[in-house]
Design a protein around this nucleic acid. Structure first.
Lengths: 347, 347
DNA sequence: GTTTAGCACTCTCGCTTCGAGAGTGCTAAA
DNA sequence: TTTAGCACTCTCGAAGCGAGAGTGCTAAAC
């Protein structure tokens, strides 16, 4: 692939920008008029032809304006990604909102989703922070009725697992409390594997609890991410490319089908580090459902301890200029909060 | 309003049924053909005219078939509501699914939402069970870093509240544990008001924790419902009345705007008792956003202790025959599960 | 007094036609 | 290398038209 001349770069950027704004194929004349290029439409037409030849643009039909291809968007984003910053007043507003929610972790998630959705005018996805390796912090056994016991397991990092145990026979709350206390002494701070090795408890009840507890912790280890918070679904419904046609449905199905979504987040996110952004344009060939969509994802948290993913899913035609710095900023903010509150004990 | 003759009732029911199935205005000829009525189309036309006069039907334009009005739907539902039952094999399938999820309360919610969405082919809403009066069960204080403390408060009924405390000065985990233990002894089983009266703690740290704790419990009392689980969003997007036009957007906005949704659930649900169904057709005049929609809601849980709401939001043209018994059945099932596991200790 | 057949009338919906508008590529001149 | 001019292409919206479905009314039949 040959190099682009300066003018070609300029024109390509403008075409993408214009198309993102208007959702209309952009023609040579429009371009010259709107951006006061000091060349004639004919010249621009030649350049457009060249860019089309190189695969950055297409035309929906012979005599229409140009529309960016996936490669066109990629070039655009590539130029942009390290340049734009969020306006500082926006930064301040967001910071302030998070400050007000500083007491409630769940609220952080809602807020992050809400901010991302608002700024990007697309669908936002935020997964709750999740420890890579579950560590036992505290267990609580709550008697309810007869053989049913509610087990609440708090993990280091703040995750809370709930589970209902059905015991072989009724057990008093006192006995349950004793068992919980004992296990708390035994397991505090340990991972599933560590707990497994020091096993060999004689007490049957304790053993039962331990089994379930280990299964839960291992299940938590398997999971790639915590709960997923979503916001901004309505944003995307108003976009022209999503009206009617199945496009919207397919993308939404992906979101509703949690297993798919988990898979998607897992695969893409594994590759990226905290601090870096991952930008997928048009599903990158792998994701049928995301044909017309782009995703901008980031990891946040404290590497090796608790991490989560956040990002935005929108039409390929989304406002990258606004979304990219927002995703970056929110990820940075959340990482900071987590560093301060959740990971502190272990850092 | 004069009485309907038997034949008019029959025809009205058929018109609604047919319209729900086809989404097309239904005409006299179709009706006679499809349902083998032993009268001529002309007769049916007369009856249709009468029903239109009475306000049960309308026609979109002068020479089209009939479409049910809101009153038409109401009549239909009124006839139906105490008659239909869920096929027993469906009941078994659902029961089985819940049996498999018996260990995980959160999973019940997802499952309930999923079942409702599937059966009704519309959007389902399920709120987590929520105690009318929060009762303290157990407190946990987890030191993280310096002055930040993670507070986990378990309420009777299984709700878990999390909150981050920022203390005036750093405190050791041992001290935190002692305070928690003391509060646990003091507050176990009590409501916010009860705890407030026996206050007058001398210890400053204990006082701080208590203050936040009370605020949280009171906030929980204020809340009408727990977290909202939603499923089946994609179902509704495929319905013809939701394509393009703002209808879908408006309804979805209602769902995303959690405050609105809470309000809606609160207002409607207050009126209905556990076991009974509430059916809103066309927003019942009050809800702008639900112009074209119907909701079928039920409360579940143990009255006076923990209750939640579940139901379905769909186009006015939804399949009531299927949805009504499903909502009823799932509510019954969840009530049962909760009775067995969560409320047992107090019943 | 119902019920029904017949009929004129109305309205939508899908199809085609057509012209305006926007944009293109090519050629030849600056 | 850039630009003006021009013929050509393609979409899109408006207008026109006919088929089809449904209605309401009237008058005859049961």
């Amino acid at each position: 692939m040959t190099e682009l001349t300066e003018r070609q770069k300029r024109i390509l950027m403008l075409v993408v920008r214009e198309y993102i704004e208007t959702a209309q194929p952009v023609g040579s004349k429009r371009l010259v008029e709107r951006y006061r290029l000091d060349v004639s439409p004919a010249t621009v037409r030649n350049e457009l032809a060249a860019l089309t030849e190189m695969g950055y643009l297409t035309q929906p039909h012979t005599s229409a304006g140009r529309v960016p291809t996936e490669d066109g968007y990629r070039y655009f984003v590539g130029q942009l990604v390290n340049q734009v910053e969020l306006p500082s007043e926006v930064q301040h507003t967001i910071t302030h909102q998070f400050f007000q929610a500083r007491h409630d972790i769940e609220e952080w998630m809602h807020l992050a989703a809400s901010v991302l959705a608002h700024q990007s005018r697309a669908v936002s996805l935020v997964t709750a922070p999740h420890a890579e390796k579950a560590r036992y912090k505290h267990l609580e056994l709550i008697s309810t009725q007869g053989r049913q016991v509610l087990m609440v397991l708090v993990l280091a990092g703040g995750e809370v697992l709930q589970q209902i145990l059905t015991l072989a026979e009724p057990v008093s709350q006192e006995r349950l409390s004793r068992v919980a206390e004992q296990l708390n002494r035994l397991c505090a701070g340990r991972s599933a594997d560590e707990i497994a090795t020091l096993s060999s408890r004689t007490d049957a009840l304790e053993n039962d609890v331990l089994t379930v507890l280990l299964r839960d912790m291992r299940a938590a280890d398997e999971r790639v991410s915590g709960e997923v918070y979503i916001d901004g679904l309505t944003n995307v419904l108003s976009e022209p490319e999503f009206t009617a046609s199945g496009e919207a449905r397919r993308a939404l199905r992906l979101i509703e089908e949690r297993s798919l979504l988990q898979d998607l987040l897992a695969r893409t996110v594994m590759k990226s580090n905290v601090g870096g952004l991952q930008i997928l344009i048009g599903g990158e060939g792998t994701w049928e459902e995301l044909h017309q969509c782009s995703m901008i994802l980031a990891r946040y948290g404290v590497p090796g301890l608790v991490t989560g993913t956040l990002g935005v899913l929108g039409p390929m035609r989304m406002s990258y200029t606004r979304t990219i710095p927002t995703v970056r900023f929110v990820a940075y903010l959340l990482s900071d909060l987590i560093q301060e509150t959740l990971a502190g004990g272990q850092a």
